[in-house]
Nucleic acid binder design. Structure first.
Length: 234
DNA sequence: CTCACGATCAGCT
DNA sequence: GCTGATCGTGAGG
């Protein structure tokens, strides 16, 4: 049960060389793989957000151009951009387009497929007593990767993975082919500055059939905020 | 150097 | 649904 032996072939570089909003949808259903052997963990991506780059998207880290933190987004497509927010949580993005404009897709949530016990152990190691601990101990596996910070905890994604090539199988995080999702819904992205001009853009894509879609304060679930659409709009 | 601000989360009400 | 925690990051002096 733990540690499947099947080879998970990485997605090719060309998969990531496409418009960022299109990639946000294309990543739904794909596999996020971390670790080798008994430490291997595999998850099915169910929620993403597109971040437009320099001069395009005021909510994107790369809006004003490259900085030391976000330089990976300005490099080739198919690299992990991993950053810390609130000083405590880390989030993982995948660079796209590769045209030096600083665009990337944030991976917000996933469903655990393999290495679930290790994911759970990683999450529990950071939790005190409380409802979340009881939920995870009681088999609430859909909660393991439900949110960009939680996902990185469960998969041991850290700042050390910033710049990692997600098209290369190995110990580091990489992307492998899954199955396309049946439906894709779009809403505004979560947690943005409400004064930002791009706050209403429907660049958050998710699989409405998944229980693992995140429900962060504010604009999280499909049931709140503007009604999800089938196509992105500005 | 200082300072303001989060692409969040866990725990409560 | 609401709030405090807690610090990396980038901009400015």
């Amino acid at each position: 049960m733990s540690g499947g032996t099947g080879v998970l072939e990485p997605l090719p570089r060309g998969f990531f060389e496409r418009p960022v909003v299109e990639l946000a949808a294309a990543l739904l259903g794909q596999r996020l793989v971390r670790g080798r052997g008994r430490a291997r963990r595999v998850a099915r991506i169910v929620e993403t957000e597109a971040y437009g780059g320099q001069g395009v998207d005021p909510s994107a880290h790369g809006f004003a151009g490259p900085t030391e933190r976000c330089r990976v987004m300005f490099g080739p497509a198919g690299r992990a951009y991993v950053y810390a927010t609130q000083g405590r949580c880390v989030c993982m993005n995948v660079s796209t387009e590769g045209d030096g404009r600083g665009r990337a897709v944030l991976i917000r949530a996933a469903e655990p497929l393999e290495g679930v016990a290790l994911m759970r152990a990683r999450r529990l190691a950071r939790l005190g007593e409380g409802p979340t601990r009881r939920l995870l101990e009681g088999g609430g596996d859909h909660e393991l990767l439900r949110g960009p910070g939680k996902l990185c905890v469960a998969l041991d994604v850290t700042r050390a993975d910033d710049g990692a090539d997600v098209t290369a199988a190995g110990d580091g995080p990489y992307l492998a082919a899954g199955e396309p999702v049946a439906r894709v819904l779009w809403t505004p992205r979560v947690g943005l500055n409400p004064r930002s001009a791009s706050v209403g853009w429907r660049w958050r894509a998710f699989d409405p059939d998944s229980r693992a879609v995140s429900a962060t304060r504010g604009a999280g679930r499909a049931s709140r905020g503007p009604r999800p659409r089938r196509c992105p709009a500005g």
